[in-house]
Amino acid sequence: MSQALVPALLNLLFRAFVVLLLPPLIPGLITKIKAWMAGRSGPPVLQLYYDLAKLARKQAVFSRTTTWVFLAGPVGTVAALLVASLLIPLGHTAPLLAFEGDVILFAYLLGLGRFLTVLSALDTGSAFEGMGAAREVSFSALAEPALFFGFAALARATGSLSLTPMLQSHGMWTAGHLSGPLMLILAGWGIVFLAENSRIPVDDPNTHLELTMIHEVMVLDHSGRPLALILYGASLKLVVLGALLVDPLLPVLSKGWLNGLAFLGGITLLAVVVGLVESTTARFRMNKVPQFLVAGVLASAFAFLLLLV
């Protein structure tokens, strides 16, 4: 009994750590890499933790235009992401919940977060935030099929409709003819990852020109604790969607804790890669973004087609 209980508890602790404590580190890492690439020393890696702590103590201002929907945006997004994080496997560690069709629930929980964020942006009655909201929904309409084609390909290859077996089937990919489709899926999802997390080349989280932003411009009016939730939610989304990219590539290791470490290493590596991409590419013009996303859809669709051959 206790022999089974201890690993389960450790696993739970590991998950809590990854979901609750780790996320703010990732944007810090990315920023650090970018700074190094540009020859600067940059803000500390833990900067986002300081920001969150500061915001949690600050008082929030609510515009007279807003209603409760304004608060529902950040709150709902974080809640939806937390529930989604229950479904996603972290490396090859045991999942918390896995059932047939949890993939769809996962994707729709992300959609729920987006819906509420968009509404809370519209709640301010500001033209800038409306613009950001319009861009967000337009681009995600293209990101969604890319995500689902990838899921379809994985489901076809693994014969399962649950995230955990889909993502933890590393053995299959080394089998040779399946590595091609995997590369395409990861390419398509990589694009989805960049778009959903508002990274360069789709969006620039650091820009200060409202007319060119997508995600950041939607949250201009949030302050205090709601803003803290938004920042934490964004970093959590990096981890949750990052797990989609990292999991299929990780090798299966003998010990549970080794698998956990491997996941942490994978996520760190992902942050480094994102930092490198952001340092070396320029942001697209807004009308180029749909093409980029369509490329993502095509990549995942081809992955599926390759599996049919």
């Binding site: 008082q59 929030a60 201002v61 609510f62 807003t66 500001s126 800038f128 009016d221 205090g224 939730l229």
Partner: peptide, 21 residues
């Protein structure tokens, strides 16, 4: 609850417009 508890407590707040940059 947590986020609402951190709203601005001074008596002025209700009439602030959207910041809008």
């Amino acid at each position: 609850r947590w986020a609402w508890a951190g709203r601005r407590s001074e008596p002025v707040p209700a009439e602030l417009p959207t910041w809008d940059c």
